[in-house]
Design a protein around this nucleic acid. Structure first.
Lengths: 229, 229
DNA sequence: ACCTATTGCGTAAATTTGACACATATGGAT
DNA sequence: ATCCATATGTGTCAAATTTACGCAATAGGT
């Protein structure tokens, strides 16, 4: 087996949250067989390049984005014809970011970049819709047992932001009061002392997620875990 | 990027359970740079071969084993020097089987096959120890929320078999009575009517796991879930 | 002053978990 | 047989957690 003809790509599924909606970062292809189509901002891995480096690079090159959270999602390689260019497998990654803190910019292979609302996605080429579906499933299940939701919010937020984030991700009603109690019981949020006026109604306290404390607790056996009614 | 020089391999981590111990299936390499060493029974993916087909093929070729449970585990490709032969990434799979029901036999690239107890593993080449570690972690976390433990047992078993399986996998004491109640509450086990004498002590009822029923329940929102004291 | 909207805090029933006690059914030893 | 050690089958109850709400507090608008 010395002349294997399989190519290796990486594809990041980057989620963004804003204003009650989940978005995904897509680029419009400048070259290639899918020129002019919107696709995930991935690309081929270089020789002697670690996979995680490759995704971060492609993401940066094509969208100008660097995300804080990036984890391996799944490797797509069961459909041998997923790419018309030949036998190409793709290692998909799940990324989380706060759109407000990013300056997206099309580069290299991309003629355009944009955030697309998750339930208003265009028909994507390859198996990219399937990859995104897998990403969403992972996000939905993982917010139950890891505090990754905070990576979708800004550093500072009011409680209703967090509530609405969970509602949006899980597409499910949750009880405001029980949710608050549960989250606060972990002792991972700290008040900044400020209040934020939301327009009408009583202003809410502004919180910050204490990531450092979470790391400590986690390594000493603590387990972030939320259930919903 | 038309002359990418990365090779793609698959490596199954097949767990077997017997008599209170967890085992892993390894082969002794017949050729290659690690000739004579014990390694995971994997190999290179063929052109136009789906990944899942490739793992099953390698497993069958090298060990004569076909497993019922096989899921994608993780893709190892961050250490560019994980294989001395060059830049090779490996898609690892987690497999579960009942050793008693298998007839292992060395073939093709393997000069020998054997089950190795999980905590008495030899030093393996490449990053195979790391891959196995990842497999064990996945198994340990997944038995909590999916009934995959049954794939490690025979079709028929007594309750203490199941208890001991969980004790072995989780390396943790569990309360026999609470465990039984929890498992039975799912209504997924059916009695065969027979009793099995375990040597000394009261004989236990023989059970079967109703896989069909589980599929039904799962698709209608049921969620297998066990906690331990 | 009054109404609406949103936040903050609390209480109680229902359910689940965790820690046990005890009866039942075998094999082996006396 | 009788007694003992061993393992299985069933039940009970307190503690902890989850779930479903009620209601006061603080803001904007009329």
């Amino acid at each position: 087996m010395d002349s294997q003809n399989i190519k290796v790509a990486v594809d990041p599924v980057v989620f963004g949250y804003e204003n009650g909606s989940l978005f995904i970062l897509l680029i419009k292809q400048k070259y290639g067989p899918m020129k002019g189509k919107w696709v995930l901002p991935g690309g081929f891995v270089k020789d002697n390049e670690p996979l995680s480096v490759a995704v971060a690079r492609e993401l940066k090159e094509e969208t100008n984005v660097t995300v804080d959270y990036l984890e391996q999602l799944f490797t797509f390689g069961d459909d041998v014809n997923r790419d018309p260019r030949g036998h190409i497998i793709s290692i998909a990654y799940l990324g989380l970011a706060n759109p407000k803190q990013l300056d997206i910019q099309a580069n290299t292979d991309a003629s355009d970049v944009n955030w697309f609302e998750i339930n208003k996605l265009p028909q994507l080429p390859f198996d990219h819709n399937q990859i995104i579906k897998k990403g969403l499933e992972r996000l939905q299940s993982k917010v139950h047992y890891k505090p990754i939701g905070f990576d979708l919010l800004g550093d500072e937020f009011v409680f209703s932001d967090l509530e609405n984030l969970y509602r949006t991700i899980l597409q499910k009603e949750i009880d405001r009061r029980n949710f608050r109690k549960k989250i606060l019981s972990f002792g991972l949020l700290e008040e900044t002392g400020e209040l934020r006026k939301t327009g009408s109604g009583r202003p809410g306290a502004v919180y910050r997620f204490n990531k450092r404390k979470y790391s400590q607790l986690e390594s000493s056996g603590f387990h972030f875990d939320i259930k919903f009614a």
